[in-house]
């Protein structure tokens, strides 16, 4: 993998920004150039949240991902809004426990994963983002497994370190489903 531009989108509270940050940190551990850019403003509160992550071997130009290689859609409005922006040959990952709709495009790889359901069955409600991250990791191999774990450790705030293993489990479930 050389350059990878990822757009993660969903509701505020689904851990969109956190997931992006884990990826950015993992990329940093991998020795790559990285950037992380959140959407900001009033829409952060209860509305949609999205986040651009760029991983590259070269200096990163625009950190705003307008044509993602990978789109992660964690709610319907996000899928509808960004589906057509994905580059041909790109990947769309859909949380199928939240989104019923199928992706119309045929020139992209679409992955449906019931991430919310998987997380909930594992007893970790609200960790669908980590399940998706596991899936994304499996599909793109954007870093080594070690660096993904380092990225996770760097991103989890000290006061929430007790959740580290649960997050690890969800990532694992994502890679297996």
């Amino acid at each position: 993998m050389s350059d990878l531009n990822i757009l993660l989108a969903g509701f505020g509270g689904q851990g969109i920004l956190f997931t992006g940050k884990v990826m950015a940190y993992a990329g940093l551990m991998e020795g790559k150039e990285v950037s992380w850019l959140p959407s900001y403003g009033p829409e952060m509160r209860g509305g949609t949240a999205n986040c651009s992550v760029c991983l590259s071997d070269n200096k990163i130009g625009s950190p705003l991902v307008t044509n993602p290689d990978v789109l992660v859609a964690m709610n319907l409005p996000s899928l509808e809004k960004f589906e057509n922006d994905v580059v041909p040959g790109g990947i769309i990952i859909v949380d199928s426990s939240i989104i019923d709709k199928k992706v119309a495009r045929k020139d992209v790889t679409t992955i449906y994963i019931p991430a919310s359901e998987i997380a909930e069955n594992a007893g970790i409600k609200g960790a669908a983002n980590m399940v998706i991250l596991g899936k994304l990791f499996k599909e793109t191999k954007f870093c080594t497994p070690e660096n993904l774990d380092k990225g996770l450790q760097k991103t989890i705030p000290a006061r929430k370190m007790d959740l580290l293993d649960k997050n690890r489990l969800c990532i694992k479930l994502g890679t297996e489903n």
């Binding site: 150039e33 990285v34 950037s35 992380w36 850019l37 990163i60 950190p63 705003l64």
Partner: peptide
């Protein structure tokens, strides 16, 4: 706003 909100190493 872009440089202020983005994260980089």
């Amino acid at each position: 706003g872009l440089l202020g909100q983005m994260m980089e190493p």
